[in-house]
């Protein structure tokens, strides 16, 4: 990852990467008349954790959903600009959004396991995709990657609802990993969890970035500071500042970032 100002993608960001996992260019999202995301340029380097922070309604979750075309589900939403993943514009009409979501998985705020067994939850995606290999091995591998295997290996056929909230969230992460994504998007993945479960999710994110690119929306600034390599601060739909997390939390360039991270507004 280079940080040369000369090749900056925009004034708000000095982050560049010749081979990024994801790249937004002039990205805007409208809900009817309202513009929720305004002309954002953002480069997400591969195998990094990028945190999106900002006050409620700043557009961070909307931006996150652009990265796997989840906004297609919102009927009033209109997206302009481009999001490039491995050189392909995700919004090209020829691109299949289902395939996009397989490569770019998502974990939501509240754990949302299916009313099925732990095994069937994990195997769900691969089965839908017609997986032909050793499903048992894939389930075990996914649960291990999500740091849940040790806790559930002797009760794989119990209902997922029997798990605690934190375990359910890790199961949802395992379910996402089972379809072998390259990018994992997380929308407030720990906000419904207690501190210990939160800590486990944060540890897991640290481990996952060895193999995956992670983009996380969080309201918890300490969490963003602890887990991310890069932080983007959004305010009223604009990308105000994007840079290394340690810079954002020790010496941000923009006054608005400073005011937000120090809790003087927001």
């Amino acid at each position: 990852m280079a940080t040369s100002p000369a090749s900056a993608t925009s004034q708000a960001s000095e982050i560049t990467d010749p081979n990024p996992a994801l790249e937004a260019r002039g990205l805007s999202v409208f809900y009817g008349e309202k513009q929720a995301v305004k002309e954002i340029d953002l480069v997400i380097p591969a195998r990094k954790v990028v945190a999106l922070i900002g006050p409620s309604g700043c557009g961070k979750s909307t931006l996150l959903r652009c990265f796997n075309r989840m906004n297609d589900m919102v009927s009033a939403a209109r997206v302009t600009g481009s999001v490039t993943f491995r050189g392909t514009d995700l919004y090209d009409p020829a691109v299949d959004p289902v395939e996009v979501r397989r490569k770019i998985g998502m974990v939501f705020q509240k754990p949302n396991p299916f009313p099925k067994s732990i095994y069937d939850n994990t195997a769900f995606g691969p089965r839908v995709n017609g997986f032909q290999g050793d499903l048992d091995a894939l389930v075990e591998d996914s649960l291990k990657r999500a740091a849940l295997w040790e806790e559930v290996h002797d009760r794989l056929y119990d209902s997922a609802y029997a798990l605690s909230g934190g375990q359910q969230q890790r199961l949802c992460i395992a379910r996402t990993l089972a379809v072998k994504p390259e990018v994992v998007l997380m929308d407030e993945p720990a906000s419904a969890l207690d501190p210990i479960a939160t800590q486990r999710i944060e540890e897991l994110i640290h481990e996952l970035k060895q193999e995956y690119t992670i983009v996380i929306v969080t309201h918890n600034m300490q969490q963003a500071a602890r887990i991310s390599d890069l932080t983007a601060f959004l305010y009223m739909g604009e990308l105000v500042e994007y840079g290394p997390t340690d810079t954002i939390f020790t010496n941000p360039r923009e006054e608005r970032t400073e005011a937000y991270v120090t809790g003087r507004f927001g």
Partner: peptide
């Protein structure tokens, strides 16, 4: 208080 940015400095 976990201060950050100029507060931390």
């Amino acid at each position: 208080q976990q201060p950050v940015a100029s507060d931390l400095r």
